[in-house]
Computed example of a mutant assay.
Amino acid sequence: MPRVIVTGGAGKLGRAVVTELISSGWQVVVLDKVRPPHPEAVFVPVDLTDYGQVLDATHGVEERYDTVDALVHLAAIPAPGVVPDQATFANNMNSTFHVVTAARRTGVRTIVWASSETVLGLPFDTPPPYIPVDEDYPPRPESTYSLVKTLEERMAAELCRWDPQLKMIGLRFSNVMEPEDYAAFPSFDADARLRKWNLWGYIDARDGAQAVRLALESTATGMEVYIIANADTVMSRPNAELVAEVFPGVEIRGELGQNDTLLSIAKARAQLGYEPRFSWRDQVPR
């Protein structure tokens, strides 16, 4: 059985990722400050800002594991404004450099990490260049958190240039949701601007976990980024109405669909075989 380190495995997305990977035959080692609710996973409490701890844990822990085949890096201060900007930058940038460097120096060549929809220009106070948005335009970070995600993507590109055998896949996750979050969704229809900040997108944690598994299974090498969202928006109101109200004048590329995601997942569908399995519409009476 292959073994994968998952950082942030106790988090909202991390819990779903650990469940998905264990059920798919992976041995999972979680590096986090909090124990995940998975008895099958090996938990190692690690401060990711301490490179010595990260490198040691990547090499193995006596009587528990001794080799690692892949890395999934999810741990981070999860959004802008949670802590002072300097703390966001220091924690997230250094943690990512530490886990990626430790993985490379222990022979790991398969790395999947959580990038972010924020690199697309969220909260879209400056409108997007076109709708639906995709991976074809350069990052537009508008916060310290997003700046770090942009730098991580550039770092991955350079590391893969240095090492052609390395695979680094950045998943630009939308706003992560669990089923208990869906009860609030019908209230969003009252004001189109409540959720305009990410083009009314979301990602069910279970579908996010599917994307992580597919990225690990990919045989590609080099660096790639993918938008990972659900197939629909958080809104019942039609896309054409929302876009006309909130983003008048923005170029429309292709079909908007009635409630199709405006964070294009076409690339992930084509290259990873990603297909969302869950929707809030199946779980909230309307």
Rank of each mutant, 00 (worst) to 15 (best):
Y202L: 02
V29C: 02
F188R: 03
D125C: 11
G25M: 12
G25R: 10
V72Y: 01
A244Q: 15
T19N: 14
P186I: 04
A103F: 03
D50C: 09
G170I: 00
W113T: 00
G121K: 01
G60M: 08
V234W: 01
A75G: 09
T126Q: 10
W197K: 00
G52M: 09
D125R: 15
L151M: 15
T221V: 10
R195I: 04
G107N: 06
V6M: 06
T126L: 07
G81T: 05
V82S: 02
R64E: 13
T49G: 09
R281D: 08
T118Q: 01
I252G: 09
F124G: 08
T150C: 12
R35D: 07
A240N: 08
R281A: 12
K149M: 06
T19Q: 13
K149Y: 05
N175C: 08
G222V: 03
V46P: 02
R140V: 13
L242N: 04
A79C: 07
V100M: 05
D136N: 12
V29R: 00
T67G: 07
I5N: 01
V17Y: 00
V82A: 03
G25T: 09
E241V: 15
F185C: 06
L74K: 05
H73A: 09
T49P: 05
A156H: 05
V34W: 09
E275S: 15
D47A: 11
Y226T: 00
T101E: 11
V6Q: 03
F43D: 06
V243R: 03
D136L: 10
P2S: 14
E40I: 13
R161A: 10
E180T: 13
E20R: 12
W200K: 02
G201D: 07
D191K: 14
L159V: 15
L199Q: 00
K196F: 05
V54L: 07
Y65I: 12
I169L: 15
G107P: 01
K12E: 04
D207P: 07
H38W: 06
T126R: 12
N175Q: 11
Y145D: 06
A270M: 08
G208S: 04
A87P: 08
T110Y: 00
A75P: 07
F124D: 08
S279E: 13
T221Y: 06
F278Y: 15
R253H: 13
I169T: 09
A75E: 02
P37F: 09
E180H: 11
F124Y: 15
V99R: 00
D189H: 07
K267D: 03
D181R: 01
R154V: 15
I252K: 14
D69V: 04
T144D: 11
V42S: 15
M168H: 01
A266F: 04
G273Y: 14
T101H: 15
R35Y: 06
V61L: 15
V112H: 00
V54C: 07
A156T: 05
G9W: 02
K12D: 03
R154C: 13
I252D: 12
L13N: 10
K12L: 12
I5H: 00
L262I: 10
E245R: 13
A229C: 10
P78S: 06
L256W: 14
I131M: 09
G121H: 02
V100W: 00
G14Q: 01
D56H: 10
P164A: 06
V212C: 10
